[in-house]
Design a binder for these strands. Structure first.
Length: 395
RNA sequence: GCGCCGGUCGGAUAGCGGCUAUUCCAGUGGACUGUAAAUCCACGGCCCAACGGGCAUCGCAGGUUCGAGUCCUGCCCGGCGCA
């Protein structure tokens, strides 16, 4: 008896997209769905009760972080992730593969694309970067330095799975190597082979039967590698699939279509780390069922408010005396009670409530957009909805 | 009137003889996609043959000096103290 059960309710005509439901030991998720990220067993600044009220169905936590703090054993003793954090709903953990990739990239000084290009260059020239000081990858796993206390640790597929079994989320991921999509073909191929080997080892290492294991498709922006990866990973006995790789906007949609055209249709597909609204429309259309992303929560804390009319920066002076809701017509807790002027004030004063309200609003917004997309699939109006929404959102 | 202290980018500051005058706040613009992010970056006087360069600038005016925001003199303004 598998840990999860996935059913498709309706497909988008002429596309790979579908609306469905995913049963997990901790409850059901209506898909497609946006999964908020709670790295350290907490969605930053928001309580589980608030998460539920804003419509979140599932939470993703982070293996690397929880392993370092408070320790996966502690989470296990607490009764597992869900019980520990007081979230009475489905959960998932990523495998730590992404941290191996992202650790030490420095803080948002440049755009993603720039970072990814730099990463590829560093990889090729074997240049020492902040990143390589913290992480060393070999064929068996990754050795890394804790960002908290500088101690040395090692992740292998076996170790990642063991830790994820301790943490006890409903869905766990195979340990993979995430790279810059800009790696040259031969380097990417070598990396992909490693990811594939690790996928097999992750599967073999799995003991618990009440958790679902998702394999991760990599391959960067190379169609042949993505295709090979989708066939390889898709052919294995995983309960579902993740599509990974920090994406370059230009080739994301074609790659997703290619991969999902190959992966078994009856299993759920999760797009790792994607959360820009327009990207989710494209992903869903091409058969993605789940997304997780830090974007809405991080943007919220950094003052960017998501609305159907596009984003805006609440810190701008122009909102100082705007006594209208944060987003006109929004049904979230923050918009029901407070104005832009007030939220602006909270941000300028660095009052903690400001970060909370912005996070609640942004999560509500993104969760509800995906819910609306799901409904449009059920209604057979996906393409109309997509067109209408993006026209005003992207302006 | 005398004495003391002080006048540096919108505000607050650092600098007290030496190369591109510091930092913070406010302002403007930008970034953020499996979270080392309640964070980070840029701009902020004028001019140009402008992804670089030039000229200014530290209350005002002189002076000393190879060189002055920094020292000296006078003036103006503010604060405090004493008459």
């Amino acid at each position: 008896m598998p840990a999860i059960e996935f059913t498709i309710e309706k497909k988008i005509e002429g596309a790979l997209g579908r609306a469905g439901a995913l049963k997990t030991p901790h409850g059901e998720v209506r898909t497609p769905a946006f999964v908020p990220v709670g790295t350290l067993a907490a969605v930053k600044s928001v309580t589980p009760e608030e998460l539920q009220a804003l419509g979140a169905q599932m939470v993703l936590a982070n293996t690397y972080h929880l392993y370092l703090q408070p320790g996966d054993e502690t989470v296990a003793k607490a009764g597992g992730l869900s019980e520990f954090m007081g979230w009475n709903g489905p959960t998932m953990t990523d495998s730590g593969g992404f941290q191996v990739f992202s650790l030490g990239f420095g803080k948002g000084k440049k755009g993603v694309t720039k970072v990814l290009r730099d990463a590829a260059t560093a990889h090729e020239n074997d240049t020492a970067t902040e990143h390589t000081k913290l992480v060393k990858i070999d064929d068996e796993g990754a050795t890394f330095t804790s960002h908290i206390d500088g101690t040395t640790h090692r992740f292998t597929p076996e170790r990642s799975i063991a830790i994820q079994e301790h943490i006890g989320a409903d869905i766990i991921f195979a340990f993979d190597e995430c790279t810059s999509p800009f790696l040259p073909h031969d380097s990417m191929k070598a990396s992909l082979e490693r990811t594939h080997r690790w996928a097999r080892e992750s599967l073999q290492a799995k003991r618990r039967s009440d958790q679902a294991l998702f394999g991760i498709v990599q391959g960067g922006r190379y169609a042949d590698l993505r295709e090979a990866s989708a066939r390889f990973i898709g052919g294995m006995d995983f309960d579902g699939f993740g599509i990974g790789g920090s994406f370059d906007k230009n080739d994301m949609t074609s790659i997703v279509a290619l991969v999902n055209g190959i992966l078994p249709e009856n299993k759920p597909r999760h797009m790792l780390g994607i959360g820009e609204v327009e990207d989710m429309f494209e992903g869903i259309e091409r058969g993605i069922d789940l997304f997780d992303c830090v974007l809405p929560t991080r943007l919220g804390r950094n003052g960017t408010i998501l609305t159907a009319q596009g984003k805006y920066d609440i810190c701008k002076k122009e909102h100082a005396e705007s006594f209208a809701p944060i987003e006109e017509g929004c049904g979230c807790y923050a918009c029901a009670h407070w104005t832009k002027a007030y939220l602006h004030h909270l941000f300028k004063a660095k009052e903690l409530l400001g970060y909370r309200l912005a996070t609640i609003h942004n999560l509500y917004f993104i969760v509800h957009v995906v819910d609306a997309i799901r409904q449009s699939i059920l209604d057979g109006t996906f393409f109309e909805y997509k067109k209408r929404f993006l026209e005003t959102y992207l302006r």
